[in-house]
Structure formats: C-alpha cells, structure tokens
Nucleic acid binder design. Structure first.
Lengths: 139, 139
DNA sequence: AGATACTGTAACCAAAACAGTTGCAGAAAG
DNA sequence: CTTTCTGCAACTGTTTTGGTTACAGTATCT
C-alpha cells in the first residue's frame, strides 16, 4: 500500500506557521518541506477550501492560519486533504451477485469501519498545539 | 488512497475452494475472479509461502487448501499478502532532525498503531468458515 | 503607469504499485 | 511423448502522488 505523505507534510508546515505567527509565502513553505512552491499551493489550496488557512495574492501576500493551533485538530487537516473515506475497505467487485464475495466484503467493511473509528478518534483528540508543545519541549 | 483488492479476492476464492473441497486449477480460479490465471498464480503463490494453500504441477494439478476454513483467519491471509505493516503511517522524512516533523510523525504513528491493532483484532476474530456460513445462509 | 512579488491553475513528466498479458521452461499424468 | 498443469520473467496499462514549467491574475511600491 502506498502512503500518502500529504497529511504529515501539512501537519509539519501548519505547526511551523503557527509558531512563526505571520504570513508565509509558498516559496518559504516549500523550503521547509524540501519541495516545490506549486506543490505547496496545490496542497494548501485544499486546506483553504476547508477554512484552515487563507491566502492573499500580490506583493506581501502568502498563507496564514485562520485560527490558532489549539483550534485545529489532525482530523480537520485530514478531512481537508481527503475526498472520500479515511480508511476505505479494499473490496472486490468482480461478481456483485456472488454471496461469497458479498460476505467477504461485508467482513472487510466491518473491520475497516472499526479501525477507521479508532483512527478518527485519535486524530480528533490531537490538536496542532499538542504537536507544537511536544516538539518544543524536546528541543 | 488506492485500495488493494488482493485480500478481498483471496478471501473470496479461498472460501469457494473450501466449499468445493477439491483441487482447483488457476484457470478455473481465474474465472471465479474474472481475471487471469497468471494473476491467480502470482497471488496464490504468496499464500503458498505461508502454508495456506499448496500447489501441484502437471496434469491433474492445481491448488488446494492445506487446512479447513475454520482454521484460516482473515489475518492469516492478510499477513501472507503483505510484506510490511498492515496500516503503515504515512510519515514525512523531509527534515529528519526537525523536532516539529518528528512530533507530527509521532502523533501519526501512534494513531495508526491504534487503528492497526483494531483492524488486526477484527481480522483475527474472523475465520473463513464464518464468511462461508454467512454466505450460505444468505443464498 | 509600470516594475515587483505574490497566488491560481493548467499541462506536462516521473515514480511506485497493482493488474493484465504473453511466452516459455519444468513437471506429472495419461 | 503429448497433454495439462504450475513457475516465472518481461512487458504494458492504469492510477495516485509528487515535481516542474509556464503563464495569467492581483496587490503593493516607487
């Protein structure tokens, strides 16, 4: 399974933005992430749609958090990045009428729903401020 | 995120094999899954390495379960198909020494471990016989 | 007004993972 | 010694993420 690094990268950069306090350009954020300004705009754009950050064009523009680190949970960020389910069950659809396939799929779906609930619970319980404090205390 | 259909397909076909009782060729299994004999051999090959099925070459050969459906759990099948972790945390590794990145990664890792434990528990609690009975009762 | 410093977005290419396909070597039964 | 199987390598297609280039739009400064 392929891991999608966007969540980790966004957590990383949002915490930095919160700690710095001001507005940051895509260029500077890209340097924080060892990547490209366009990738940053692409990904932060998804967060903007969900009201987590706001952007301003033109000279002196850039990106800023719309609320404090304490008011943003990991789940907020994840939901902004994901279109669909967080942990979709990998079902088969080769024979939709086969009762065996349906029974297998039902088992997988149930298990994934349990795991997803656990993941969501953990994500919801963690704010970006918590991450920031952990990081600072370990410097 | 991309869903890997191998687990669902293998559950499907293993239950069929268990219900039929005998030896099945890659050709017939491929028809059950609407796919190709080579894909079947490739995937069942992973299960053979873990002792879940055995194969015989030559005329009259094919694939057979090594134990009963009641003695195979979904987790057994999943472990046979997966090399690494079941639910790897999608971490970032852009700045390994940055305490913020490390704190973000730690949070993600912890949450995924909880979810993975839940998934593993559900997989371990479900045998293929359970799937077979569910399917048969719903015919 | 016009240069400058930003974002927004489209259009590509690259890499990774799973799936599908062809081709052929090897083995076992008839 | 032919037929019927598996085993395996090699190639292609597809999807998803990431990286890059290019260019249009916008706000600020002089």
């Amino acid at each position: 399974m392929k891991s999608d690094g966007r969540l980790a990268r966004m957590l990383h950069v949002l915490v930095h933005m919160g700690l710095l306090g001001g507005r940051e350009t895509s260029e500077r954020i890209a340097q924080m992430l060892n990547t490209n300004p366009v990738v940053v705009r692409r990904t932060l754009g998804a967060l903007r749609k969900h009201g987590i950050v706001e952007s301003e064009g033109g000279r002196g523009g850039g990106w800023k958090l719309t609320r404090s680190l304490a008011q943003i949970t990991v789940l907020d960020v994840q939901k902004a990045l994901l279109e669909g389910q967080m942990l979709p069950a990998p079902l088969s659809s080769d024979h939709p009428n086969c009762p065996v396939e349906r029974a297998s799929n039902a088992v997988l779906e149930h298990a994934h729903k349990l795991a997803e609930a656990e993941l969501e619970k953990a994500y919801m319980a963690t704010t970006l401020e918590h991450i920031a404090k952990t990081a600072v205390s370990k410097v």
